[in-house]
């Protein structure tokens, strides 16, 4: 029989809720690191939030940062170990709310790191509160009647903000809702790590994800909701690509 799929050796059991796409994000990273043969040089800086659960599943050197501070921790690591591969894995509460200063300034300094930003529009680990990326009218445990823009503002488009800075060399957003998008996501994750290997500076990949548990949906329905609500607001594509002339 022909072997057409092999699970990455650097990922163990799935640590996430059933139907959650975080597991897909982790798997893509693991596959890319292994394919590029950099998994033995990689150091993963984990966030506070659901992303922290990777501490149980990724068989890489890893450190759990304080909430939002992963880009600062990654700065210290990468400046100390320029030949290693340092990346952060952060959620939307971690990166776009409490860690906004750290991500903007790490990007602006052009730190030669890779940032994987998993955006599921909600605080998952703490039980479904309003996130900076929660959609307009979307309900959460702290916005029971939906996100009201007059008091809660609009969902923050992080990839667009990072794109405005001079230093970053690759900024992209993909979605994990379908096989087609997952393949595209893996391609851009690979580019983001190659960028670091080639000393090209700061790369930022935003991955749209779901949260069936806190969106209170069946996994399959959460994917439909992503397609009809999330993706139309957070447009997919490569926003900045210095190597590719964009």
């Amino acid at each position: 029989m022909k072997n057409i799929y092999k699970k990455s050796s650097i990922i163990s059991e799935n640590a996430f809720c059933p139907g959650c796409l975080h597991g897909v994000a982790s798997k893509l990273i693991a596959e890319v690191l292994e394919e590029l043969q950099i998994h033995q040089k990689a150091i993963c800086v984990l966030p506070v939030g659901c992303g922290t659960l990777n501490m149980e599943s990724l068989k890489l050197d890893r450190v759990v940062a304080a909430h939002g501070r992963a880009p600062a921790v990654a700065t210290g690591l990468k400046r100390s170990l320029p030949d290693n591969i340092v990346f952060t894995y952060q959620g939307d509460g971690d990166l776009a709310s409490i860690g906004l200063a750290e991500i903007i300034h790490a990007a602006n300094r052009g730190e030669n790191i890779t940032v994987i930003f998993v955006n599921n529009s909600i605080y998952g680990m703490t039980g479904g509160q309003l996130a900076p990326t929660t959609l307009v009218q979307q309900q959460s445990t702290t916005s029971k009647f939906g996100r009201n823009t007059s008091t809660m503002g609009y969902p923050i488009k992080m990839a667009e903000i990072i794109t405005q800075l001079e230093s970053p060399t690759l900024v992209a957003r993909q979605s994990l809702d379908s096989p087609r998008n997952i393949i595209a996501a893996k391609k851009i994750i690979r580019r983001a790590f190659e960028n670091q290997m080639n000393h090209k500076g700061f790369s930022f990949v935003e991955l749209l994800s779901n949260c069936p548990t806190n969106w209170k949906m069946k996994p399959i329905d959460s994917l439909d909701w992503m397609r009809s609500n999330v993706i139309p607001y957070f447009e997919l594509g490569i926003l900045k690509d210095v190597e590719g002339g964009k």
Binding site: A65, R69, V73, S80
Partner: peptide, 20 residues
């Protein structure tokens, strides 16, 4: 490294300390 805040600065040394 001049950090963007004291919060960032202490976390940068946290990262560098992880590296030994």
């Amino acid at each position: 490294v001049q950090g963007e805040s004291e919060v960032a600065a202490v976390n940068m040394i946290y990262g560098a300390s992880c590296a030994g």
